[in-house]
Write a protein that binds this DNA or RNA. Structure first.
Length: 320
DNA sequence: ATGGTTTTTACTGCGTC
DNA sequence: GACGCGGTAAAAACCAT
C-alpha cells in the first residue's frame, strides 16, 4: 500500500512545477525569465514582474580595469556538497576520444583505461570517502522520492558531512544517518515531511530514524524548531486541488489557533490537515475528511477533533 | 519502567443522494 | 444501500519522568 501511495504522491507533485522548478506566469501562463542583473523575474509574454528584488548572484567585488578583474576573478565550477568530493576532483571521460573528438590509438586507449582505474581508486580511497559517496547517493534518492528541492539535498549533505567529521557514524548505519539528515534538512528548510513519509522511502525503520535523528540533532547542536503546521498547508492544499483562497483561509485558521495556544502538544500535521479541511468547508470546496486524511497521513478522527478546536478558537475570537 | 497524553482503530448511528 | 460525517471506547504510540 505504501509504495503505491508514494508513487502517486510524486507524480502529483511533479505536475505543479516542472523539473527545474521553473514557474509559469500566474497572469498569462507564459514563460517566466529571470534577469539577474536587474534582480527581477518577469514574464516573457505579458511582462508581468513576478518577483522583484531577488538576489543578485553576480560577483561581490568590483573591478576597475582589466588587470584588477583578472586578479579578483575566482573562477571554476561551483562546488557542491551533494557530491562526495564537492565536485572538485578530476574526472576522466569514458569516451575514447581526444580533446578534438578524434578516436584514440589502441595504445592511448589502454593508457586511458589504466588512468581511469587509478583515478577512481584515488578518488574513493579511504573509507570516509566511500561512506560519503554511498550516503550522498541515498540522500539524493530519498530526496527525489519525496520531491524535495535541491537546496534540501544540499543541506542534508552538509549535515551528513558534519556527522561524519564528528565521528557520529560508528555504531550507526549509513542508511539511518542519511535518512535522519534528510528529515532534519527538510524541517530546517521549512518544507517538512512527516516521519512516516520519510520512513516510507527509507530503508530503515521509523523508530530507528527517530532515534538517529534525535542523536544527530543533539550531537551537532542543530537548531530545529518544532515543525510549523503552516508549512504543510501548501502541499496538502495543492494535492487536493484547493483554491488559493482556501489555502489562505487555512493559514489564517492556524495563526489564530496559534495565538489561542490551542495547539500545544498536538501533532502539527494533524493541525494542518484539520485547517485545510476546515478551510475547504468554509470556501465551499468539495473535499472529504477521507481525502485529507489520505494526503496528510493522519486519521479522520484526529482531523475531526482538531478542526472542531480550530473552529471553536475562531468563534471565541468573534465573540471577544 | 511508569503514568499521562495524544493518536489510531474499530464500530455505530444519522442524514443524504 | 453507499457515502460522508460525527461520536465513543479501547488499544496503541508517544513522551517525560
Amino acid at each position: 500500500m505504501t509504495d503505491a501511495r508514494i508513487r502517486t504522491r510524486h507524480s502529483e507533485e511533479r505536475e505543479t512545477t516542472d523539473e527545474r522548478g521553473r514557474l509559469d506566469c500566474p497572469e498569462c501562463g507564459g514563460h517566466v525569465i529571470t534577469d539577474e542583473a536587474q534582480g527581477e523575474t518577469v514574464c516573457s509574454d505579458c511582462g508581468l514582474v513576478v518577483e522583484a528584488d531577488s538576489v543578485d548572484r553576480g560577483p561581490e567585488w568590483r573591478a576597475f580595469d582589466a588587470k584588477e578583474k583578472n586578479q579578483k576573478s575566482r573562477v571554476g565550477a561551483p562546488t557542491t556538497n551533494t557530491m562526495h568530493d564537492k565536485g572538485l576532483s578530476t574526472n576522466i571521460d569514458w569516451r575514447d576520444k581526444d580533446a578534438y573528438g578524434k578516436s584514440l590509438s589502441s595504445r592511448q586507449r589502454q593508457k586511458m583505461q589504466r588512468l581511469r582505474k587509478w583515478n577512481e581508486r584515488f578518488r574513493t580511497r579511504d573509507s570516509k570517502e566511500r561512506n560519503l559517496k554511498q550516503a550522498l547517493g541515498e540522500i539524493d534518492r530519498m530526496a527525489s522520492a519525496l520531491g524535495l528541492p535541491e537546496n534540501v539535498r544540499e543541506m542534508a549533505s552538509v549535515i551528513y558531512r558534519r556527522a561524519l567529521d564528528e565521528d557520529l557514524l560508528p555504531g550507526r548505519s549509513i542508511e539511518g544517518v542519511s535518512t535522519a539528515c534528510v528529515y532534519a534538512a527538510a524541517r530546517q528548510a521549512g518544507v517538512p515531511r512527516s516521519l512516516d513519509e520519510i520512513a516510507d522511502v527509507s530503508r530503515v525503520e521509523k523508530s530507528e530514524v527517530a532515534r538517529t535523528y534525535r542523536y544527530v540533532v543533539r550531537e551537532l547542536n542543530l537548531e530545529v524548531k518544532p515543525a510549523d503546521p503552516e508549512s504543510y498547508v501548501p502541499r496538502f492544499a495543492s494535492s487536493l486541488d484547493l483554491s488559493d483562497e482556501a489555502e489562505h483561509r487555512a493559514r489564517a485558521l492556524l495563526q489564530n489557533a496559534k495565538e489561542k495556544g490551542v495547539h500545544s502538544g498536538k501533532s502539527p500535521v494533524g493541525l494542518a490537515a484539520a485547517a485545510v479541511y476546515a478551510a475547504a468547508l468554509l470556501t465551499n470546496e468539495k473535499t472529504t475528511q477521507a481525502a485529507v486524511s489520505e494526503v496528510a497521513d493522519i486519521s479522520e478522527v484526529t482531523i475531526r477533533n482538531r478542526y472542531h478546536e480550530l473552529l471553536e478558537a475562531e468563534e471565541s475570537l468573534g465573540l471577544a
